[in-house]
Design a protein around this nucleic acid. Structure first.
Length: 544
RNA sequence: GCACCCGUAGUUCAAUGGAUAGAAUGACAGAUUCCGAUUCUGUUGGUUGUGGGUUCGAGUCCCGCCGGGUGCACCA
């Protein structure tokens, strides 16, 4: 039966690009070429499209919202986890046939931006990214820190002059000025808005560089300055329907005590919106825009409660899509010194982190000295591939909902259970394939009939099993929204290949059939490794 | 105080309720001298925080306790 399927698919290879299980045989059909299994354990028939999305999903996309930075400071390690997760989840859902849109909701307004603006205005002397050579987001971040320093000094001196700590915080002159600035911004004061636009432009240029280096992208950007007014009609709608209620002071609330939660404010007494008002508004806007089948928020687990409230409020309003919202909640990253706190300067900056990983890759590669003939631009590209591969793998292999320990001192693994280990297995495959290509007697395997190979040896069987598991693993990763499932699988596969490679000669096998079989197996291993790593945003080099 | 999340080898992490809880790292011993040694094989290391319960079967589900974290703003 295996041979029959194989012959059929061989003739139709150009059209096929999917995985499927037929009559208990699992077939791996990728990139217009065919490999078929000779055994498997899967009983039920199933197809896995990986090229064309199912047309029924096109009008009901899955939206994945991630990154969501504030524009007052650069991205740090926590954002890195967020971005890598969001990107990988989006790619995994794409690979399982969903139509996916990646979106970013940038927090470009509020008191924190005003703090940076104020400090820059007072002490910046017109400094720009061009004049200082600083990345825009770092420059703006510098003035945010500056503000904080001055604010602290002022509070301290107020306290020594007999004010209570609480009063001092309210009375500090710079803080009052920042609040005044926010009011001006909201009143559309031209000068303030111009400064706000100028500094945000700097920040976006900086973010773009970071995103590009990280390898993440977005199909659509939303900005809070445009969305923060949304949601007020929804609140009114809730009042009309009698599911929200108004207190005497005019503030609007939702009562979720019947769901085991509390009462939650939805609109301030002065009629202005709060965080959740906006999220109510944007979620409905997005539903109207896209009729999404799912809306996935990649947001830290400190907001678990917020998203519970959001969903239940929408449920009370009678929107039947309330349960299509999903909060992909991830835990924070710990440093050996404890928690990351931006005020205490214990954050790990994303740009610096990536640079360090790349130079570490460079150091190790040079030490091994295998690639001294590589052109320098190719070499730089390679260091980037390895360094970022190590970083991304290190972060993504951990289950999102678990806290993870990040030790910058000991740095990240380049050996063992690591990105470069897997990359090097791929490179080894490619090396073997090149060798196979150079042997003319092996080049033409059109007539190759794999059915002869019924007696697999242990390491071959082990490798084959791992290769064929890929579709199931992909399914599981998509179901659980967990890139870690892919990451751990791809490691098993790389290990299986190394074991196989060590045990069996491929190009110089006992006979031509064995060589052909093992070459095919090598080729498919390389393909799956490359595809699976791509879902994690990890590239593979041809040499390393 | 109330709510939610997490506790697995020394360390960093795995394990759709299912076989003897697995890797990596560290230490030690060995193999391959090659189609790529960032390799492979072995030894070492566990009362899965703890006490009960459900189940034919629990690291996984339920309850209590201990430890760590987060949330409970007319901030976002």
């Amino acid at each position: 039966v295996g041979a029959e399927i194989g012959n059929y698919l061989s003739e139709h290879a150009a059209e096929v690009s999917s995985f499927n299980v037929v009559k208990g045989f699992l077939n791996l059909v990728v990139n217009n070429s065919v490999w078929l299994s000779v055994f498997n354990d899967v009983a039920e028939d199933k197809s896995y499209g990986i090229s064309e999305p199912d047309s029924s999903f096109v009008d009901a996309p899955v939206l994945v919202e991630y990154s969501s930075p504030n524009t007052n400071k650069p991205l740090h390690l926590g954002h890195v986890r967020n971005n890598l997760l969001g990107y990988a989840v989006a790619e995994i859902l794409k690979a399982t046939g969903n139509h996916v849109k990646k979106v970013n909701l940038v927090n470009d307004r509020g008191i924190h931006i005003c703090k940076s603006m104020l400090a820059w205005k007072k002490y910046g002397n017109g400094e720009t990214p061009e004049s200082s050579g600083m990345k825009g987001d770092h420059l703006v971040g510098k003035y945010y820190v500056e503000f904080d320093k001055i604010n602290k000094e002022e509070v301290a001196s107020l306290v020594t002059n007999g004010n209570s700590e609480e009063d001092a915080k309210k009375k500090a002159p710079v803080m009052l000025e920042a609040q005044e600035m926010l009011r001006k911004w909201e009143a559309n004061d031209p000068e303030t808005v111009a400064l706000w636009q100028k500094m945000n432009t700097w920040v976006y240029a900086g973010f773009d560089t970071t995103y590009k280096m990280m390898g993440v992208d977005f199909d659509k950007m939303y900005y809070e300055s445009q969305t923060y007014i949304l949601g007020k009609e929804i609140v009114q709608e809730g009042l009309d329907k009698g599911v929200f209620f108004k207190k005497d002071d005019g503030s609007v609330w939702v009562d979720l005590t019947d769901e085991g939660l509390d009462q939650k404010l939805l609109l301030r007494s002065d009629g202005t919106s709060v965080y959740i008002t906006q999220d109510l508004g944007t979620s409905r806007l997005r539903y109207q825009e896209t009729h999404f089948s799912r809306l996935i928020y990649v947001v830290g687990n400190e907001q678990d409660y917020h998203f519970k409230v959001l969903k239940l409020a929408l449920k009370k309003l009678g929107y039947d899509w309330w349960n299509d919202l999903h909060h992909l909640s991830y835990a924070m990253v710990d440093l050996p010194s404890g928690k990351m706190k931006s005020r205490e300067g214990t954050v790990v900056d994303a740009d610096e982190l990536m640079e360090e990983m790349i130079s570490e890759a460079k150091r190790i590669t040079k030490e091994l000295g295998k690639l001294d003939d590589l052109a320098s631009d190719e070499a730089e590209q390679l260091y980037k591939t390895i360094g970022l591969g190590a970083l991304k793998y290190y972060i993504l292999k951990v289950d999102p909902e678990k806290r993870m320990m990040f030790n910058p001192e000991e740095s990240i693994d380049f050996n063992g259970h690591s990105g470069p280990f897997i990359q090097s297995a791929y490179v080894r495959c490619r090396s073997v394939m090149r060798k196979g290509d150079s042997v003319t007697s092996l080049k033409n395997y059109k007539d190759f009939d794999p059915s002869f190979y019924n007696a697999l040896e242990n390491k071959e069987r082990d490798l084959l099993k791992n290769v064929l598991r890929y579709p199931e693993v992909l399914d599981e990763a998509a179901e659980r929204f967990s890139p870690a499932v892919i990451a751990n699988y791809v490691y098993e596969l790389a290990k299986a290949y190394n074991g196989f490679y060590h045990e069996h000669a491929v190009v110089d096998a006992e006979n031509v059939e064995a060589s052909l079989f093992r070459l095919k197996l090598t080729e498919q291993t390389a393909r799956v490794l490359k595809m699976a790593l791509a879902l994690l945003g990890i590239n593979v080099p041809e040499r390393m």
